[in-house]
Amino acid sequence: MILSLASLSKTFGTTKAVDDVSLTIPEGEFLTIVGPSGSGKSTLVRLLAGLETPSGGDLFLREARITDTPANKRPTAMVFQSLALFDHRSVGQNIEFAMKMKGVPALARRARAMELLQLVRLPAEYYSRSVTQCSGGERQRVALARAFASDPEILFFDEPLSAIDYRLRKTLEVELKELHQRTGRTFVYITHSLEEAMVMSDRIAIMQDGRIIQTGTPAQIYGAPANRFVASFMGEVNILTVENKGDGQAAFVEIGQPIAKPGGAYAMVRPEALAQGAGDISAQLTVTQRLMLGSRTQVHLSSETGAILISEIPGTAPDLLIGSTHSFSFATQDIAWMET
């Protein structure tokens, strides 16, 4: 375990930004902390980097307690949301900053900066360029090289890709993942996008109201969300409520269909699992909207109770016209059960 969080807390006034978070991070892991804005994920990573002092709990790097170690004494580096590049310095001077603070001689600094430029795939002539002349993607790479230059044991990323357009973001996500594989360093990444987390991470921790409510591999989180919050965070999914009618009888409120052995209070059914035709649990649903998604078609379906369900069907689904009623169903094995 490279980093252990033991009941870490941070309060601002009366608000608990980070509330009793315990977590262990194995060496070399790519951990992503996901949460909506205000969930405390930024505060949490600032606590880990030493930019905030915790109100309670402890933090251990390997076996050493670093709770009170200031940021400049921790062997960690952060890539900030704003990138926080030093605008009055060149690309080279930005990258060399940490080495300069350590007193590394100029020649050695320069040689290492050249290696780092190569690592982040920037041409060597960028060394003397001003950071203000760099494009958005180039600035990202400079920030990355600057963080690597301090030779950190852990790298923190505070939503560095949030202000970048879709295509470049996709490219940088893949590059970041490759960089993680090549360098073998521990990455702790913060984002509000579960999709981004799924692409890059070994493990995901989901945060809500200052607490970590679920941790697991992307597949675990995808397959078995801990509660409705996690399920809805994954985008458009159907969440059905189980109503117990006594003497072992139960039914889904939204579609009025009985369910023999409910595994929890709520059921998550993915749009692709809700298909036309007969199946374990079926219902008559009326199409209220259809959206072309390229390789598949998304239809919004209204049940007799007025609840809206979402289904995604491969192809163009020409028969699912708005206003028409069809039989839809899903298999019990496609249900992910949740208690809350």
């Binding site: 930019l51 400049n72 952060m78 926080a84 030093f86 605008d87 603070m101 963080a147 301090s150």
Partner: peptide
């Protein structure tokens, strides 16, 4: 951007630096 100061501290600079 005052985050520059935090970045510098994070990269090993003390208050005076």
């Amino acid at each position: 951007d005052p985050t520059q100061e935090e970045a510098a501290r994070d990269l090993g600079a003390n208050n005076w630096q």
